[in-house]
């Protein structure tokens, strides 16, 4: 019963503690908003919990190429940074969709990556940005594409003793994250669609949440949206592909056919919104 909280002050200490733990014995706590719920429900019973609180991962910084977010940085700090909505509007949309303000004061981007929940509102937009995850472990540091890290559901492809240090997000021309829910505020999304517009190929990057297993990049949809300014027909085809190809199932939140209809719709609306934003209004 209960767990011991480990609060290392340095990264090497943290890696050493993580490496020394037997499989299943240790859980990593970035913000804890998801982990502690699982503990309460008896879904996990770690004997030791490794806190990232004292590590130098409690910040975010902007550089020329984009944004780097320390894995213990609360989401609330990001959304209160006025640059976020200007530079990464899709991430801003997605963060605002996560729980409540008081939850976002604890919840983190790093935690979302490590927990790898299929219903996460953050992972689709990070996938669409081609986010890169900086990992530290007994073998040193490495960078890995988020898509590769999310190979399996709820089980990121991290080696024994490896910890997520930060997430790097390249800035792009524009982005948006749209969701569908029963209750707009503070609900779990039935479907989430992230669309990133880029000035270089592929011009459109699309990712999807609310599918079982894990959030997905929709490369076949991106292929349909081959041009910087897709025609109405091309967009229609892309939406049809999105609706048809996503591996939806029915669950307590929504049925499979409903999700298919909504994903096509959200994709269309997202692309139209980004196109409208890309076209300076006359007059």
């Amino acid at each position: 019963m209960g767990f011991e909280l480990l609060r290392p002050a340095t990264v090497p200490q943290a890696v050493a503690l993580a490496s020394a733990a037997a499989p299943g014995e240790l859980a990593v706590l970035a913000g804890g908003t998801d982990l502690l719920l699982d503990v309460d429900r008896g879904l996990v019973a770690p004997r030791r919990v490794l806190s990232l609180a004292r590590l130098p991962w409690h910040s975010h910084r902007w550089a020329k190429g984009g944004l780097t977010v320390g894995s213990a940085e609360p989401l609330r700090n990001l959304e209160l940074d006025p640059r976020l909505a200007r530079r990464l509007p899709g991430l801003h949309d997605a963060i605002r969709a996560v729980g409540s303000v008081a939850l976002r004061e604890r919840a983190t981007l790093g935690g979302n990556v490590v927990r790898a929940a299929p219903a996460s509102d953050l992972l689709p937009i990070l996938l669409a940005y081609d986010a890169v995850v900086d990992v530290v472990g007994p073998e040193g540091r490495r960078s890995v594409a988020l898509d590769a890290l999310l190979a399996r559901s709820r089980e990121p492809a991290l080696g024994h003793g490896e910890l997520v240090a930060s997430v790097a997000i390249p800035t792009t021309a524009d982005s948006v994250y749209r969701w569908q829910r029963v209750r707009p505020a503070n609900d779990v999304s039935q479907v989430g669609v992230a669309v990133v517009r880029s000035t270089e190929r592929p011009y459109w990057r699309v990712a999807l949440g609310g599918v079982p297993s894990r959030p997905l990049r929709l490369h076949d949809v991106e292929r349909e949206l081959a041009r910087a300014r897709p025609t109405r027909e091309e967009l229609g085809r892309a939406a049809a592909v999105a609706g048809a190809s996503a591996p939806f199932v029915s669950d307590k939140r929504a049925s499979e056919p409903y999700r298919r209809r909504v994903v096509a719709l959200l994709l269309t609306r997202s692309v139209e919104q980004l196109l409208a934003r890309a076209t300076p209004k006359a007059g």
Binding site: L5, L29, T33, D40, S51, S100, L103, E105, R106
Partner: peptide
């Protein structure tokens, strides 16, 4: 609700609204 769904347990930590049900005291 003890699961971040109601906000009844909100306190300020360093001046910022925080769910005390999903926050470890030691943390």
């Amino acid at each position: 609700c003890r699961s971040g769904g109601c906000g009844a347990c909100t306190v300020l930590v360093e001046g910022r609204p925080t769910l005390s049900c999903l926050t470890l005291s030691s943390e």
